[in-house]
Structure formats: C-alpha cells, structure tokens
Amino acid sequence: MTIRVVVADDQELVRSGFAMILDVQEDIEVVAEVGDGAAAVEAVERLSPDVALLDVRMPVLDGIEACRAISGRSACRTVMLTTFDSDEYVYEALHAGASGFLLKDVRRDDLVHAVRVVAAGDSLLAPSVARRLISEYTAATARPPALPESSAERLEVLTARERETLLHLGRGLSNAEIAAALVVSEHTVKSHVGNVLAKLGLRDRIQAVICAYETGLIAAGSAGPAAVSPSGE
C-alpha cells in the first residue's frame, strides 16, 4: 500500500528536499508540494493523502491552524516540522491534532521512518521536542485549554493499573518497558493503553503524555525527558 503525502513548507529548498527524499521510496508518493497552510488544507481536501508534513510557520495560514483544519475535516495524519530553538508552538499544535514532530534538520532515514510510523496510526516526537514540551509547556502558567475531560477528576474513571499505565506513558516508556515495570505481558499493556486512551478520550500516546502532566499525575520536570515511542511498542 502506497503512503500518499502532502509536503507544506514556505521554503522551496526545504520543501523540495523533503519531497525528493520521500518520493524515491517505493511505498511513499508525494502527491503535492505547497508553500502555505491554506494550500495545504486545500490539497488535503482535494487529494485525500495519508500524511501531511506541515511547517509550523507558514504564510496565509500557519501550520497550527492548517493542522487543526486538516485534523477536523479528514483522516489525514499530520507531522509538524519545527526549528527547536525558535518555534514556541509545540504544545498548541499537539492540541490541534498533530501526530508527530520533527526537527527540520532531521536525518533522511528518520524522515522516512516518521512518515511510515504516523501513516500506520502511531505517534512520534523527536526527543528534543519532547523534552521541550515537557520541561516548558506543561509547566507554563498560560497554556492553551486542557484536553477535553482531562482534569484530575477525570482520572477517577481509570483503574489503579490503568493509572499506573498512564504514569508510565507520561514518562515515555514503550510497551515493553511498561510490561517489565508492571510485571505483565505486552499484550496486557496494549489492552491497558487502549483502555486509557478510550476512557480519557485521547487520540494517541502523545496526548497521553500531555494528559499525565496536565492532570498532575506527573509533576513537570520530575521524570526527566520523555520521548514517545515511535512505534508505540
């Protein structure tokens, strides 16, 4: 099955470079290259791709608003392209529906891997982006609204073991690592993860990380950097 991708970046060289890397893969087809967020939304609506790569900062419509529109209108998954030292919208973009974050200096193989991971329905954060998300945005006093129904009281719907699972998800552990920590099988962990996401109305493991911090299950800065397992395994 071919993964159809839209690449959106206002820098032509960056856009073309990413497109060239992806288009030579046997299982990936770049169906459109666009230079602004509005064009990205239009391309997604017209071409129904599987994944959209969106620069955070674009003219006409920025990447966050484009992500929000795409996530709200289609099944297309979005990966945000960000410059670690200057972009300050990671937290907001995750709320808008982003399934992954990559730095613009991402390695060729990592870019290809990210598209495949996100197309498969999993989530991905570059480790440095995850570190920024947790250390800064979850500790900020002025933040975007919390995820739907992710208040501390909402955790009462979870069993004790599901709360433990959420705690480990928030710390960035893979399913295998959670299984070792809880002394259960990976199959059981997958079941717990599914229950946590369903009960809290969370889309994926990235939102689970945010939820663990927003609800106070993990205090910001207490667990060190967390990176969401690319494969969710």
Rank of each mutant, 00 (worst) to 15 (best):
Thr83Asn: 07
Ala139Trp: 13
Ala208Gln: 13
Asp122Val: 00
Thr159Ala: 15
Leu217Trp: 03
Ala220Cys: 09
Thr78Ala: 07
Glu92Tyr: 03
Leu147His: 13
Arg131Met: 04
Tyr89Gln: 10
Ala96Cys: 06
Lys190Ala: 11
Thr188Asp: 06
Val90Pro: 00
Pro144Trp: 06
Pro148Ser: 06
Pro49Leu: 06
Ala130Thr: 03
Val157Pro: 00
Thr2Asp: 11
Glu136Leu: 14
Gly170Asp: 08
Ala8Ile: 02
Asp204Cys: 12
Ala119Thr: 05
Arg116Phe: 07
Asp9Ala: 05
Ser185Lys: 05
Glu153Trp: 03
Ala180Asp: 15
Glu186Lys: 13
Arg132Glu: 10
His168Arg: 11
Asp36Arg: 02
Leu217Ile: 02
Leu125Gly: 01
Cys211Ala: 15
Tyr137Pro: 00
Pro49Lys: 08
Ser86Glu: 13
Leu111Cys: 13
Ala208Asn: 07
Asn175Val: 11
Asp27Gln: 09
Leu167Phe: 14
Ile3Lys: 09
Ile70Phe: 03
Ala140Arg: 15
Arg154Asn: 14
Phe18Trp: 08
Tyr89Leu: 11
Asp105Met: 02
Arg131Asn: 12
Asp105Lys: 05
Ala8Thr: 03
Glu65Met: 02
Leu169Arg: 04
Glu186Leu: 04
Gly172Pro: 03
Ala223Trp: 08
Ala43Thr: 06
His95Tyr: 11
Leu155Tyr: 01
Gly97Leu: 09
Glu26Ile: 01
Arg107Cys: 05
Gln25His: 07
Glu149Gly: 11
Val209Arg: 01
Val106Arg: 00
Gly221Ala: 05
Glu156Cys: 00
Arg154Asp: 15
Val129Lys: 08
His192Asn: 10
Leu182Ile: 07
Ile134Trp: 02
Asn195Val: 07
Met80Ala: 04
Gly17Ser: 12
Ala140Lys: 13
Ile210Arg: 10
Ser86Gln: 13
Val189Tyr: 06
Pro127Gln: 07
Ala98Arg: 10
Glu177Tyr: 04
Asp55Ile: 02
Ile21Val: 15
Ile64Val: 15
Ala198Pro: 00
Thr141Gly: 15
Val209His: 10
His192Leu: 15
Ala43Pro: 13
Asp55Lys: 05
Thr215Ser: 15
Glu33Leu: 03
Val79Thr: 05
Ala119Val: 02
Glu92Ala: 13
Leu54Ala: 06
Gly216Glu: 09
Met20Thr: 12
Arg154Val: 01
Pro225Ser: 10
His113Gln: 12
Asp55Leu: 03
Ala176Tyr: 07
Ala93Tyr: 05
Ser231Ala: 13
Ser16Arg: 08
Ala93Thr: 07
Cys67Met: 01
Asp62Tyr: 02
Asp23Gly: 06
Leu54Pro: 08
His192Ser: 04
Lys104Asn: 04
Leu102Ser: 03
Met58Phe: 01
Ile64Tyr: 07
Val157Ile: 12
Pro148Gln: 10
Ser185Phe: 04
Phe101Val: 01
Leu217Lys: 04
Glu156Trp: 06
Gly100Ala: 09
Pro144Cys: 10
Glu214Leu: 09
Asp110Phe: 01
Lys190Met: 04
Leu22Thr: 06
Ala32Asp: 14
Pro230Met: 08
Glu92Lys: 06
Asn195Trp: 00
Thr215Glu: 08
Val228Met: 11
Glu164His: 08
Glu65Tyr: 02
Leu102Gln: 12
Gly72Ser: 14
Gly172Leu: 01
Pro148Cys: 08
Leu111Asp: 13
Thr138Met: 13
Arg131Val: 02
Val34Thr: 09
Val24Met: 12
His95Val: 04
Leu173His: 14
